[in-house]
């Protein structure tokens, strides 16, 4: 536990010193606030361009607060995910092939301690970024579009955090097994295939992590008729634990280069 905390502290300090703790939250916040701002100012922007008749602009549907929040969430599932996977692809691979892991693993450090600290460090970064971003999106949406039901918004956000833990664990596993860029490609491919498959046959994959995103959107779209999400949540958490154990199992079997 002591060693895990020590490595976790080192992870956080590293992200602070290489400014990851700054730029990833900033990008996330920008990602979150663009949606409410752009939908609010869209009619004015169109009017200013002056080529669209006023009647047409007026007939533009004004999106409600829950619609905007759903759009915000869909941004996270695309660009946010891309950012998380790419910024995390060298999480373990970087240390394993760069040689810094050798000097850590030659000491009395268990593979699991190393991997869990790495996971916790990166997941903290993702949660910090997401909370800041989602919070500001929520703030601007309530300001510009109208009140967002807080209970539903919180539930949707929570489901996204769980889904992010799946993405982080998968990236971690790929980064342990493969070299950096290959890890990113494989992680994105797996998540991409999963969401495409879920889009094609949603009923078959209602247990999968991809379904969490649908449930989250459902919380905001129809607060009265929310789906029970126990199964996909349990499956997602289970898969995350499985990925983390698999990467700590395979860490030393890779042969640690120096």
């Amino acid at each position: 536990m002591k060693v895990t905390l020590l490595i976790y502290r080192k992870e956080m300090l590293e992200m602070l010193r290489n400014y990851k703790l700054l730029w990833i939250p900033v990008v996330f916040v920008l990602l979150g606030v663009t949606q409410p701002l752009s939908s609010y100012y869209l009619p004015e922007l169109l009017q200013m361009s002056g080529q669209i008749p006023a009647e047409l602009v007026d007939s533009f549907p004004v999106p409600g607060p829950s619609e905007v929040m759903i759009q915000v969430l869909s941004q996270y599932s695309l660009i946010g995910l891309l950012l998380i996977v790419i910024a995390g692809m060298n999480l373990v691979a970087g240390e394993l092939y760069g040689g810094t892991a050798a000097l850590v693993l030659v000491r009395p450090v268990k593979s699991a301690q190393f991997i869990i600290a790495k996971w916790a460090g990166y997941f903290s970064l993702v949660v910090i970024s997401f909370v800041l971003s989602y919070g500001s999106a929520w703030y601007y949406t309530s300001l510009l579009q109208g009140t967002v039901p807080w209970r539903e918004a919180l539930a949707a956000g929570g489901l996204y955090v769980i889904w992010f833990s799946f993405a982080v664990s998968l990236t971690l596993l790929c980064s342990t097994l493969l070299r950096g860029s290959a890890a990113a490609v494989v992680s994105l491919l797996v998540i991409g295939l999963l969401s495409v498959a879920h889009g094609l046959v949603p009923t078959w994959l209602a247990w999968s992590p991809a379904h969490l995103l649908t449930v989250a959107a459902g919380h905001l779209a129809e607060p009265q008729a929310t789906e029970n999400s126990v199964v996909p949540v349990a499956v997602t958490l289970l898969l995350s634990v499985l990925f983390i154990s698999a990467s700590s199992w395979s860490l030393r079997r890779q042969g640690v280069s120096d």
């Binding site: 290489n18 000097l103 009395p108």
Partner: peptide, 19 residues
């Protein structure tokens, strides 16, 4: 794990955290 503490190891090209 327990006997690891008895060993000090220096690789041929050690790499450290530059930061």
């Amino acid at each position: 794990i327990a006997s690891r503490n008895q060993i000090g190891y220096l690789p041929q090209h050690p790499s450290f955290y530059g930061w």
